[in-house]
Structure formats: C-alpha cells, structure tokens
Amino acid sequence: MIIGEYKTDYGQDEGIWNTWAKKLGFVVALLLLLLIPFIGNDYQLLMAGQIAIFVIAVVGLNVLVGYTGLMSLGHGAFFALGAYTTVALHQFFPHLFPLITLIISMVVAGFFGFLFGLPSLRVKGLYLAVATLSANFIVLFFIRQDWLEHLTGGRGGIETPNAYFFGTELITNQQKYFLIVPIAIVMFLFAQNLFRSRFGRALIAIRDNDHSAEILGISLFNYKLKSFVISAAYCGAAGTLWAYFFPAILPEDFGLNMSITLLICLVAGGMGRSLGPIFGTILILMVPELLKMGAFYFSEGNASAQIYFSPIRDIVFGLMIIGFLIFEPMGLVSIWDRFWRFINRWPFAK
C-alpha cells in the first residue's frame, strides 16, 4: 500500500522519484545493472550490451514518435551514420577518446536529422513516414559508393575499432558493458528529465494539439526540428556504441529493417512513456533468442529438426507482435501501470 501525501514542498512533488517505491526501484535496477557483468556469461553480456545500445536508439525515437507525434521510418539511417562516423574517425585518430567520438557522431547524425526533419514542417502522419523512409536509402546509397570505400568499406562492410579508455583497449564484452551501460543510463535520464520541464512539455503539446501549442508561444518550426535532431543524435550515439561493440559492420545492418525494428520496440514498449523503450527493447530482442533456445530444446539438438523450427520461430514472433497490438495497444508499460495500481491500492481494492 503506497498511499498518502507526505510532500511538504513543490520541489518534492515535481521529482521523478516522488514515492519511496520508485526510488527503491531505481536503486535496485542500478544494482542489478552493476551485478550483470559479474554474473553473466559472454553470451548474456552480448545480449545485455545489444539491448542497452538499442535502448538508446529507441529512447531517441520515442522523443520524436512517442512525444512529438511525428512518424519516422528512417532512424536506421541515423544509426548507420553514427556507426560509420565512428569507423571513419578512428581511421584518422586510432586512439580517440570514446566520448569524443560519441559527441561527434551525435552531431553528424543530428545534422542529418535536421535535414530529413525538414519535411515534417509540411507533412504529418503517413506522409511524413514515407518522406523519412528516403533517409534509409539515401544514406546507405552513399555508404555503398566505391569512392567512399576507403572510409566506409563500401558494400563489403568494414572492421570496427575498439574503444580506448585511458590507454586500455576495451576488448571483452564485460569491458564494453562498462562503457555502454553508463552512457545508456545517462541518456535515458536526460530524456526523462526533458519531459518534465519546459522543452519536453512543448514537444508533448505539439503532439496533442499543434494549434494550441502555437497559440501558447511554441514555435512549431523550432521544436519539430529540434525533436528530429535530438532523436537522430540519440540514434547516432547508439551507432557509435554499436561500432565499438561488434567486430564489424555491414551497410545491410542498418537498412529499413533496423528502422522498423526500432519502431516495433517502441510500440511494443509503449509510445510516449519513459519506460516504454526499455520494456519494448528487452521484449523484442529477447524473444527471438528465447524462441531459439526453445527450438533447440524441442528439437533435442537435432540439426535437421532445427531447420524446420526456424521459420516457425519467425511466425511465432510475428504472431506475438500482432497479439500485442491487439491486447496491449498501449504497450508493455500498461501492464506495468496496472501492476503498480494494484500494489498502491492493495489490500483495499483490486
């Protein structure tokens, strides 16, 4: 039972962790994140790193799609820009400090976000989705060009550098985990803070009612473009960490497929909710792995049976997404909300 108001000033009321349960939850989550690298094996850390990277990108997409209400199918391209900027930078400065690479990638991705965000001033909804779709093709087109091959590796992909942190090369997944997860936490909190103060409120206002937003002094031009830039910069940051995390990248890693995966993570988790990207990404990235394990278990290690199981895996995954959209259209966050509502009221009501 978590009831009663014990706040004595408005500062407490404005806080994110305004109940002890939330505060405790955050501390427990941090402790768990600190524990994972010591108890997880290499495969589990691979998944954890991948999830953390995706969370950054989906949090960024959430700024645009969830909070500002602008559709985008082109965020895979900004991811690619981040990753390739990192690779290119390290060809000139092999031992560049990872945070500097991160910031440069964010600036590059943000700049392209600005360019591809320009149509949002004119068009909305599906039309904007189609306009942003072009980002995938244009960016990948240039990455595949032969005359850029020395920087990007062209069609064949390219090996990626490892990050050097004060002279130490981060090689194992455990070492990389300690680079990726703190950045993910900081970027998540930044976005969370954004939406409880002036800037983020303006974005939500644009989503809910753009006419009213304008009449209250919110420049649509300004805020829509900034929203695009922020979300693209988040994807750029995710791209940089991706390049550090995996041994090599291919242009195909970042196509339309990735743009859609990011969007699915967001929808499954809950759009316009701060925890949505985390839940959604964990679900969408973990379920195929669990299905893989399930298939392995049921086929009893029989290789030919596994071949038959793999298409079934995709079908089950697809059905699950459809099921989600039907039964939890507001995403996993609504289950979370129901859980807390129950805890808050227990034992007085269900």
Partner: peptide, 29 residues
Amino acid sequence: ALFRGMTVLENIKLGSHSRLKSGLFDSGI
C-alpha cells in the same frame, strides 16, 4: 483546445511556456 492527454497542471504549465527560459540542455539536465 486543451491538451487532452495531460493533467490540468501540465496544461496550465504549458500556458507559461513563452515566459520561461530553460532550453534543451537545461531541461535535460
């Protein structure tokens, strides 16, 4: 023409948007 998804307080806070100063980085930090 209210922002229907928000609470009363959030709606009212939005009214003072043009009087406030904090920008992107202030808000995020």
